[in-house]
Design a binder for these strands. Structure first.
Lengths: 191, 191, 191, 191
DNA sequence: TATGAATGAGGCTTCATTCAT
DNA sequence: AATGAATGAAGCCTCATTCAT
């Protein structure tokens, strides 16, 4: 009815897009990428199917957007400055925070794993994911180098693999998994 | 009397079933469960769609069959007696064989990961997979207990997670992954 | 603002749904429920297969909708107030109208019989059909009670059965069936 | 193994065919014509699919055979000589036997109704059914004529319709249907 | 910006029927 | 007479995407 200013339109766009992303995120995490239809996403977001295509060119673009954005949000929630020097205490803090996130955002990790392991989808997000992971690995490598560990790159890669592996195993049966004990063992062995 | 002997029928059934499983295995590994249609599998197997349903109740039964059977084959190829006591040497041998298999049977592991991480499929195979993994974990646990490690169960769980994590990371880019170095580090840290 | 007004959408939905129902009605009546495919219905209705599922959850819902709606329409066409007291004259009028409908709406009754006698479909519509039939039986029962007939419920049930039986027999060969004479005999015997 | 005489082969043919018919009959009655597959029939009959086609050209031929044969069996069970003069007592006996059969052979009637009301199937069996029904109607007509009823043909047709109608209504909910009372009312009204 | 009706390709599955043996 | 593997058409249904408004 009333004419809207450009700023208002921008706000609307932003809100709508966020609503769609939230809905999609949740549904993907609960059901897996291929079991969620655009219809359901639109419905859950309170938006028409047509409008959804106004914001995302197609379903793949949507999932790509969500995975990448989600990854960034996870990093934000991790709230860890990878540029600052990593001390023993900070490393422990990083691991702690990481396991915290795993528990609190289990549904995101569900999505992440389910997407990252679909051969056809992997190509879409590989690059972005690597962009995000690299600082993590670099920081770890630097830490190990400073502590005169022999193969710092391999150490950091292994830590990365461990976190991935624990994530996947944890998700197979979160209730019974001894996350806390595992975490302590990792700290004991790798820090 | 009879049209074909029972042995002949059995042979035919065995061969056809194997052909279908092979085709499905390869396609699932390359594309992920949900992106492979029954049509494509039948075509690749050189068989009519209808016949496929003569051997597998449905698509889920097919994937279940493949994953479980594949897992058993992997264990066979591992050729490791989990009942015999695990010594330091045997543990190293186990890790070596495991990494060997990872390299040689990359397409199976691709399928395994792709399937194990799909919410829709996970429920189907969880139990069978656990059945197969349990002896592995049990043996490791016993090893750690014998070596007076404090939390033997947690140790073996962590080793399991590491193998999963390395598998997944390796598959994201097999060419550049320093599998050998990682292996040696694992041996150094966990044996 | 809005793309089409809500009224426009409603109109479209109504028209399309009616077109599908008409097509389905006719085909079901001519061929029986299980021999009519969704494809044929869509084609006859001038609509895509997909759209049909926009209006009906599945084939069962479609047949249910048609039978129940048709039954209600028949009752409407019967145009008989079952709440008002039934006199001899009104009873005769009811029978007359009923036979009139049988002749005029033969294709609906064809469907009705064809559907009501299919074990697979019967469960779907039983309840709704009973809801519609009950007032009819109740009114007849009251009539017989007022006329001091001994077993009024049984009388009205039998009249119901007669109408069903005549319907079915009439449909087996409408041309030769002496509908008028049968009607008169019913009136003579049961009023 | 041992060579068989012609008589033995004939016996085998007869037995096998009967086994198939019995199985089909039961399955059709329980599930309706279109919901029963040839496979299931063959399995229940303990016979291969191929053999079934040795005895019946196709599914329609099978159902036709069963309905007609079943109808004849019903008549046999009715054990009523339509050529002998019908007295009041014999008429009552006929009705009694008819209702008896309805109760005892409910599954056959289920099949009969389900088949007879499928427009596409009706053509197949119409003629045979009429052959069987005609003596019944003729006998009734003669009875009414002898008792100086005005329209004997119409009377007998109506009785036929009533039996059909009761059959159908009874089948919609056998438990609650007052079959006995209905029977007595028919006897009271029409004999 | 926003709607939702409409499409059509494609997915899974069933099944009557055939045929080599 | 008998088998059952094999086919292929057809059935029901889902869904990403488009488009007129």
């Amino acid at each position: 009815m009333s004419p809207k200013t450009k700023a208002q339109y921008k706000q609307i766009r932003h809100d709508r897009k966020a609503a769609i992303e939230d809905a999609a995120m949740q549904l993907f995490a609960e059901n897996g990428f291929s079991r969620v239809s655009i219809s359901r996403i639109a419905q859950k977001a309170g938006v028409s199917k047509g409008l959804l295509y106004n914001y995302f060119t197609n379903k793949e673009a949507l999932v790509k957007d969500i995975v990448v954005k989600g990854f960034r949000q996870m990093l934000d929630k991790l709230d860890f400055n990878f540029n600052k020097e990593i001390t023993r205490e900070r490393f422990i803090e990083l691991i702690n925070k990481n396991f915290d996130l795993l528990q609190k955002e289990i549904s995101y990790w569900n999505l992440y794993i389910s997407v990252i392991t679909q051969p056809a989808v992997i190509a879409l997000v590989k690059e972005e994911i690597f962009d995000v992971i690299t600082p993590f690995l670099t920081a770890l490598t630097k830490y190990y180098a400073q502590n005169n560990v022999k193969n710092p790159e391999v150490h950091s890669l292994l830590v990365g693999a461990i976190l991935d592996g624990v994530t996947i195993d944890y998700m197979l049966g979160p209730e019974e998994y001894p996350l806390e004990a595992i975490k302590n063992l990792i700290i004991e062995k790798f820090i």
